[in-house]
Design a protein around this nucleic acid. Sequence first.
DNA 1: GTGAGGCCCTAATACGTATAAGGACCTAAG
DNA 2: CTTAGGTCCTTATACGTATTAGGGCCTCAC
Lengths: 341, 341
Amino acid sequence: MRRRPSQRDIARAAGISQPTVSIVLNGRADEYGIALETQDKVREAMRRLGYVPDVAGRSLRGGRNGLIGVHTFERVFPVGPDDYYHEFLVGIEEKAVEMGQDLVLFASTQRPDGTRSIYGAGTNRLRLADGAIILGLERNDDELVRLAREGFPFVFIGRRDIPGAHTPYVAADYAGAIAEVVEALSSAGHTRVGYLGLDGTLRRGPQEERREAFYQCAGRRGLEPDRPALMASEALTGAWLREVAASETTALVIEAFELADALAATALREGVRVPDDLSVVCLDLPPVSSPGWSHIAVPRRDMGARAVALLLGLLDGEVPADRHEIVPCDPLTGDTIAPPR
Amino acid sequence: MRRRPSQRDIARAAGISQPTVSIVLNGRADEYGIALETQDKVREAMRRLGYVPDVAGRSLRGGRNGLIGVHTFERVFPVGPDDYYHEFLVGIEEKAVEMGQDLVLFASTQRPDGTRSIYGAGTNRLRLADGAIILGLERNDDELVRLAREGFPFVFIGRRDIPGAHTPYVAADYAGAIAEVVEALSSAGHTRVGYLGLDGTLRRGPQEERREAFYQCAGRRGLEPDRPALMASEALTGAWLREVAASETTALVIEAFELADALAATALREGVRVPDDLSVVCLDLPPVSSPGWSHIAVPRRDMGARAVALLLGLLDGEVPADRHEIVPCDPLTGDTIAPPR
DNA sequence: GTGAGGCCCTAATACGTATAAGGACCTAAG
DNA sequence: CTTAGGTCCTTATACGTATTAGGGCCTCAC
């Protein structure tokens, strides 16, 4: 008798039938009028045999398992320390703890090339969980559409408006936060502002969203932004920085933390003083990073937590299937915005 | 007809029986001698109806659900970046990907005080997975004993010899690595060596294991170690370091990365040159840390991966239930061991 | 003493899958 | 003509769960 005890085993041990066990287990004993004595027998047997409901059986039947799936379109734990997913996971786990749910990290969906696919492995593994939180930088709209069409409950982290599909998501309020940045620069007296963007496709979606929000907002507030300078962080040269410092541009908006790190090093080397010679603001600096530069930050932890709450709301049917949640960014902090020189 | 197609639907569409569909799907058509024409009909219907196998049904049938539990006696994702668990998780995930398994992080087992307990919630939630990998700094021997007695398959990460229970574990070969350190110090010409240990209970088990291994090994190799200096990293003062540098002691073995960081800062302040004035070796420096100090490192990634492999071996019955695995540490690297001044 | 109604439980079933056992049909050998 | 053997498929079953329908037994009222 090596196999895990099932409801039938409990029933046998308690001298009653399997459905009764199920009823007691699910707290519907009163509703069905099960004698207290019987309930005790059942619970005692469960404890004694170490019963735990079977995931497969439950989800086959259509019930809940207390499992929240987490699917990422790339590896969950990249090697580097500045990990895109980590903070999201922290938030997800925190809320899961609070709500008494466990998490399933889908590792089995990874293909040989390192990307992950919901349907790639031939089966939709996500179904083992009650619902899933999905995150990823790649655009995999077709898989999401299919998932939505199957009626599987999920929440995407990040803005993801897909035509023709109701996909609930939790996104950061970039626009609001960037308005705050623009306001701060403007009221410090800046008019010509440079924009340093990340070249390449690494996190293209979010980057472009920031960029657009910035340019729209700057225009409305009377700022004159330079055309965006796009480069990889290794490509940031002293010559470029000297040129900026010598130009009319008095402040720099930086799109990504890699560029901020590179800029910090270059500025130090070139003797460009921040913020005396050049004001600097970074959009989305991770918590562990860089000097105390002015920045806003995507509230990853908070977004993770909200995603869990939203998913549970979905599962309980308390929330419509096309609900979006926009989470305010962490407010602008730091001290590298000064009046122009 | 909103629901996803099942094998029965395929069968109906192709005008045959459900088991035939299953047989074709699993590539056993030849074995069962299914006519090519029938196979084509089946495959065509699958494509047309968009069939995707149902995991729940499968794992219900197979007895396994492809879920590997990960239980930690503390939070999985602490807030700090120098995260004790992170590297283990990386290894676990890597191997899980390779073996096509998914991971369950047990968040529901957390008690209000932040600690986690296997049996705290009344039932052993771990049972939901096929088996589990358990890690944690606290000693919770009683829960492990109970788990072992219940016959639940698990692997502990870290040395954990519990009298009267077969608990498989994966541990680092501290002794071997520390012998390497002692050998290096000795052959560089050192005889008097200091030992800087971490005070407090934070990671007591592993720390003490290192300490004992060092003192035993040093004795055998003819080194004269000072009595260990135990302190919290904040308590490391310039005065202490000056005293060491002025004494007969020519090398320092450091137990934990926090102390290494603190020592680096203090040495810089005090003008103590490493390794010219003092040789330094750290036991277990995380990958992302500090100057290029000489150190050995606990092979966390590797240990995580081995734990997964060991657990699957256990599940397949290919491995006895009392198997221990000792993983060699990453070899000594760095350049802060020099001849004594 | 018959019916109503409450109490407490069981039998039957369905979900999707995989496999063992079995059966129908045909061909070829004796 | 019978039988052995091959080919190709089906029937039956089991896995663990939750729910619907139903049934036995007791008590009380008429």
